[in-house]
């Protein structure tokens, strides 16, 4: 299957959209009609041909445009990509994992030839053709994490494992839901999650940490997380909050269907072999409300979830300004009929 890459933007004129064929493969995050925090982690096996879970690193029609947006963010703020000095080996682990996976899963788009440590990498969509020595950073134009991070959709954090904890010691983060790598780099698992309400009390992070510390090589896991974003904007960083914050005032009952986007993070967890670190890809998928409700099951369920969301979470996810308006708008797509279990459309 050849992917038609869309020419689109995630800023200014916001031409981003999902083509009709792409909508049903959206990772809708609600398996039930109500939502509460949980670790809800499952093995990241290949599931459902055509779904975003078919391959370890999903490539879709937004790939090229997302990589252009990442380059713009990094040009403007190099602090979005940082690695503490001991994280270079982990960067090479990341290079290997992505290149091997993509060349195997998308042979029409990516090619990798390895002769010992002499590697030849071809990325056709981004028109990259590079030869380098695996393990020798001087043969790449930049840090290995940045090199591959500019060629793979989603933000990527790399967590060093030591002292019974995980440390956010490297990352390339340009499409984040409101957290700052520059501020959080070097923090441990509990420190960087400190601002998340409720979850600490529920013991969510303790359980999640225990799970991650024992993550075996070759057996990745995944979970879905979500929020809402006004406009299809990838870069909702705290750094740029003054740029995207005012967007929330632009929401009206007339434009809400096109303005508000369901923002889903497909989070996966991979044990890296040479560094013993964990790679934490956070892949963001965006879909306008108008697109969500084309799937009747999703329209019904999203209405119920948003309507019944606990007030602390409405606040934390930053939905307060338009929450009632959105519930009202979504109610038109909920006839009260029961919904089928699971996330996939009927």
């Amino acid at each position: 299957m050849t992917i038609q890459f869309r020419n689109e933007t995630f800023r200014n004129d916001f031409t981003y959209a999902n083509s009709p064929g792409n909508i049903p493969r959206f990772p809708f995050p609600f398996p039930e009609d109500e939502y509460m925090y949980s670790t809800n982690v499952e093995p990241h096996h290949a599931t459902r041909v055509g779904s975003p879970f078919e391959h370890g690193f999903d490539v879709d029609e937004h790939y090229v445009a997302e990589m252009k947006d990442r380059a713009l963010v990094l040009a403007d703020d190099p602090g979005r990509c940082q690695a503490l000095p001991h994280m270079e080996t982990a960067g090479w682990d990341f290079v290997e994992l992505v290149m091997v996976s993509k060349a195997r899963d998308y042979p029409d788009l990516f090619e990798l030839t390895m002769e010992g440590d002499q590697w030849h990498w071809i990325n056709k969509p981004l028109q990259i053709d590079d030869k380098f020595t695996f393990g020798d950073a001087s043969t790449l134009p930049c840090h290995p994490m940045e090199y591959i991070g500019r060629q793979v959709q989603g933000d990527h954090a790399i967590l060093d494992q030591r002292d019974g904890n995980l440390w956010l010691d490297a990352g390339i983060i340009t499409a984040q839901a409101d957290w700052s790598l520059d501020f959080d780099v070097g923090m441990n698992f509990f420190e960087w999650h400190a601002p998340v309400p409720l979850a600490h009390e529920l013991g969510v992070f303790q359980r999640a940490l225990k799970f991650l510390l024992s993550l075996p090589q070759g057996q990745p896991s995944r979970r879905l997380n979500w929020t809402l974003t006004v406009n299809p904007r990838l870069d909702t960083s705290p750094e740029n909050y003054p740029k995207w914050g005012p967007d929330k005032l632009s929401v009206t009952p007339d434009n809400i269907g096109e303005k508000i986007h369901l923002r889903v993070e497909l989070q996966t967890f991979w044990r890296l072999p040479r560094s013993n670190a964990i790679l934490f890809p956070i892949r963001t998928y965006l879909m306008a409300m108008n697109e969500v409700v084309t799937q009747p099951k999703w329209g019904r369920r999203l209405h119920r979830v948003i309507r019944d969301l606990r007030p602390e979470l409405v606040e934390y996810k930053g939905l307060s300004r338009y929450h009632p308006m959105l519930v009202e708008w979504l109610s038109k797509y909920d006839d009260g009929a029961p919904t089928s279990p699971g996330i996939f459309p009927d």
């Binding site: 700052s180 501020f183 959080d184 780099v185 601002p195 705290p238 909050y241 003054p242 914050g245 300004r321």
Partner: peptide, 27 residues
């Protein structure tokens, strides 16, 4: 010149608390 909320979020590496614009949505 932005008005910052001083969050109880602390970075040992930077030896600093985080300040985030408090009225970015409606200046």
């Amino acid at each position: 010149d932005l008005l910052l909320l001083v969050r109880d979020h602390y970075s040992r590496r930077l030896a600093a608390f985080q300040g985030v614009c408090i009225n970015a949505e409606d200046p």
